[in-house]
Amino acid sequence: MKSKISITNLSKSYGDVQALKGINLDIEHGELFGLIGPDGAGKTSLFRLLATLLLPDSGSATLCGFDMVKEYKHIRNLLGYMPGKFSLYQDLSVLENFNFFATVFNTKIEDNMDMIRDIWLQIEPFKHRLAGKLSGGMKQKLALCCALIHQPKILLLDEPTTGVDVVSRNEFWQMLKSLKAKGITIIVATPYMDEANLCERVALMQNGEILSLDTPAGIISGFKKDLYAIQGQDIYQLLLDLRAYPYANSVFPFGQSVHYTDTREDVSLSELKDYLISKGQNKIEIKRITAGIEDCFMALSQQNNVQA
């Protein structure tokens, strides 16, 4: 069975708030797909719709060929779902949680060891510890294990790495890659732009809309302007000065520097530097850099806001 997901014109509102505005999206069999966007972009709503936990206002979606609304019972058998909030029983031990989910899906842990061995080996030393006493990364690994216990065709992971340390995050993504190799279609939502590069294709989401849908490289190559990283002593003042510069196109703080694009084709860097010095900035460093996903997201969301 091909575990393809097709979403057509899907909309969802809560009262006056439109959480999803006509989403169209096709996700292929065995794809590792990323939904990237800030909090409130509509990622969780989309997940809950796909998990058949919510009903759409309009539009439809099929998972593995089953209709999201009418054939939800079939979908629930095929789906592995990991909600954004840790949703296992905190007062049950790791093993008890695991056994419980295995019996719920009418299966045994041993029968599914192939699928989960890599992850299981990492949490096995803690198998008698209560789930509520695990570290954030361990909790997520356990949740992933429990979501995989019935060998789902489609895996929905809502912000699995939020609140997890960097090392565990890397490990987690390694696991997703090996799962993808087993032919599972995986959709991951994440607010971390740097994780986008780890997906095969990503959709950048904001305010219930998809801003851009492409491979990470495709999205970056869509960034046409020259991008400069500017460093100075007083980042905040630098930001204000750059925004006041008549030719400034976009100015965003980015860690220890400010990312800047110009409205002109040819940028005179010395002129820009002179302008900043005249404003009293010192120790200015300007470097040309290649854009990352976050730069693309910022540019796209700015465009989107101007249109809106």
């Binding site: 058998n77 909600p83 840790f86 029983y89 719920v104």
Partner: peptide, 13 residues
């Protein structure tokens, strides 16, 4: 409240 109902609902139970 704990969100486990979400998982139970998505399961075949």
């Amino acid at each position: 409240e704990m969100g486990t109902m979400e998982i139970l609902l998505v399961s075949p139970l």
